[in-house]
Design a protein around this nucleic acid. Sequence first.
RNA 1: GUGGAUGUAGCUCAGUUGGUUAGAGCGUCUGACUGUGGCUCAGAAGGCCGGGGGUUCAAAUCCCCUCAUUCACCCCA
Length: 422
Amino acid sequence: MITAVRGTYDILPSDTPLWQFVEARARAVFQRHGFCELRTPIFEQTELFVRSIGDATDIVEKEMYTFPDRKGRSLTLRPEGTASVVRACLEHNLLAQQKAVRLYYCGPMFRYERPQAGRQRQFNQIGVELFGSYSPLADAEVIALLVRLYEELGLTNLTVKLNTLGDADSRLRYQDALRACLAPLQATLCTDCQRRCATNILRVLDCKVPACRDILAAAALPGMQATLSDAARAHYQQVLATLTQLGIAYHEEPKLVRGLDYYSHTIFEVTHTALGAQDALGGGGRYDGLVTEMGGPPTGAVGWALGVERLLMALRAGATALPVPPAPVFLIAFDERAVQENFIIADALRRAGIAAITAYEKQSPKAQMRQANHAGAQIVLMRGEDERAADIYKMKDMRTGVESVCPAADVVHHVTAALRGA
RNA sequence: GUGGAUGUAGCUCAGUUGGUUAGAGCGUCUGACUGUGGCUCAGAAGGCCGGGGGUUCAAAUCCCCUCAUUCACCCCA
């Protein structure tokens, strides 16, 4: 038997209503906030991700699905959404005008990682990007948007974690200071941290190995705040103040670090208690340098992405009321001729906007009634020899068990009235 | 990429120190005055015991490999 490849999975009909619910709510919230959808291809030139995400990141180093096409060009299934959005904006000149551009996207992303709870190789993200402003209000706007979206979906037990990396100069100064401070200690750190010292030194701060934590705590490392420029510090404070005015609770996490190179200034992450090790429901930050890095004009930018699978895990944990599938009209045939007759009536019902299904073969009335019940039918229409003689349909309301009769020519009206009354 | 746990019916799981035709619950199907669902009762169908190799008179059970799932590390959404 051929199975779905490792790290991928099917979203079955029993689950798709929940997905549709989440997507519909998300679109409604984005629409209220003035964000428009952008749909980009699922694969891009490999170079796009290498340049935007950073060639020293885990994503680029070992997690991308990269392959040559038939003419030898290197292509990559997108591991995240921001790079494609920036590329599309530049390609179509969407950032040329002097105004903010608000975009959202949703769809599958691909990363070659070891699957575990809340982590698969093809997974879905919903994300937003806000271009054209350096204002801390823009940071606050997208963070608020993320929180309002979760609220709209009925999620609680959320934690919003915030930090600032400062501008590019602040960050370089801090990394230098950290490197100088850690150099003499490097041999005593865990092997992961020794590697991090070379690749992404900020991650050392986030190490969970107890021995490392003790060493770091004793080392009196410089705080990032110390190397922040005045402007960067003021920007961050303004973001915090605005969130407070919006009534959005947050935790400052000075050690919060992100895995993509393009972030600067504000970074944030939303976690949920019911999620286990992969507890980040969503995260993002400001990336003012990326647009110029990709060959565009200097453009302020801030955005986030959320993992839909993790969002659904959190929703299920919270036992939020799930949407119910449609309850169709079910047509039962007592004889062979009725199968064909029902098929025609079903079409008339559907054209009138009423969901209806029929059987393809005559089965026992009992079996057909069971099917109708299983399908959640509210109304059952029955046709056989007796009904044909009188040119009528027998109609049963499955909730009350009450049966009635109506002329064959008038079925649509009767069903409509019955559904409305129920 | 590293480590632990687990793969038996559609689903959730039993299976005693290796020993006859591998079980249960739920679900499915069929019946219970043959043209009527839900509840109840009765019956039936449904398993290369994840796959491959090995040990043995004998393997779901022991050993090795492999694939997959899962949890954690790592990393991220």
